[in-house]
């Protein structure tokens, strides 16, 4: 399979903390890559650099053969790399349907001052998209009136609406109730595979990783400590000791928001 996204020697430090200390990683077209690791290891920072929110201090990011290092978020999105957020970024005064429609409009032409946002074509597409995510029943609810799990899904749906070739997701299942987690990921995987999207996602739940990732990268102190198939990586005793204890219920460790 051919490489779609590639990081070469990415470096970024905040003060003395190295969030990326020479990251080399390539993501193949169509693959699902999970990023795991303890909080503060630099997982979110990797997403932030790839999507243009943070500029790396060194190294390169190549997408589809082109250098996109340090480009602005807007430009990177337009090239086909979308992202979702650890804390859902919804337009809180709009309904779920309007949130989705705004994303569709952003993709298809926001510069039309006279035709309504909820024109038939976009409305239909928005509802179809929400249906795929199981969000249709709450399409008319205001985004600030949703529970955390639903906000998370809506946030991802907005990124998917952009029809990206690469989707980076920051903890797509955090905040989703444990009982619904698998169903949500199932849905997500179906939608993304169906659209042929390449996915990179930060994840703390090893069951999710085991089931959906093609490959797993283990982050530790701004470096990639291990990389391989889920079976391979998750069986590594080093990884088990340092990382997995954090994500599996019933084991020691604390899960919390990872701000890098």
């Amino acid at each position: 399979m051919s490489t779609l996204l590639e990081a070469r020697g990415l470096r970024l430090a905040f003060g003395g903390v190295k969030a990326a200390d020479g990251i080399d990683l390539s993501v193949a077209k169509g693959e699902f890559l999970a990023i795991i690791g303890p909080n503060g290891a630099g997982k979110t920072t990797f997403i932030n650099m790839t999507t243009g929110y943070l500029r790396p201090q060194g190294g390169q990011i190549l997408y589809d053969g082109a250098d996109i290092t340090g480009r602005r978020p807007r430009e990177i999105v337009r090239r086909g790399i979308a992202r979702s957020f650890q804390l859902p970024q919804l337009f809180s005064e709009h309904t779920v349907e309007e949130n989705a429609a705004l994303a569709i409009a952003a993709r298809d032409g926001i510069w039309s001052p006279l035709r309504p946002l909820l024109r038939p074509a976009w409305r239909e597409e928005a509802r179809e998209l929400l249906d795929r995510f199981g969000l249709l029943p709450i399409a008319d609810r205001r985004a600030d009136a949703l529970n955390e799990g639903t906000r998370k899904l809506a946030d991802i749906a907005m990124a998917v609406a952009l029809r990206p070739r690469v989707l980076l997701m920051d903890e797509p299942t955090s905040g989703v109730a444990a009982s619904e987690k698998m169903a949500v990921v199932e849905t997500l995987a179906r939608v993304l595979r169906g659209a042929g999207v390449t996915a990179v996602f930060v994840e703390h739940d090893m069951d999710v990783v085991e089931r959906f990732a093609d490959r797993v990268a283990v982050w530790a102190q701004g470096r990639i400590a291990a990389l391989g198939s889920p079976a391979q990586v998750l069986a590594d005793p080093e990884v088990q000791r340092n990382v997995i204890g954090i994500g599996r219920p019933g084991r020691a460790g604390v899960e919390g928001p990872a701000h890098a």
Partner: peptide
């Protein structure tokens, strides 16, 4: 005109600036 504008993507994006401006950037809109 303003009535149509407010209902249009451009008008709706104005309210989006108020609530979550950065998201617009990550949707490819300035």
């Amino acid at each position: 005109f303003v009535r149509a504008y407010l209902a249009s993507p451009m008008g709706q994006a104005l309210a989006a600036i108020k609530t979550r401006e950065t998201r617009l950037d990550f949707m490819g809109v300035s």
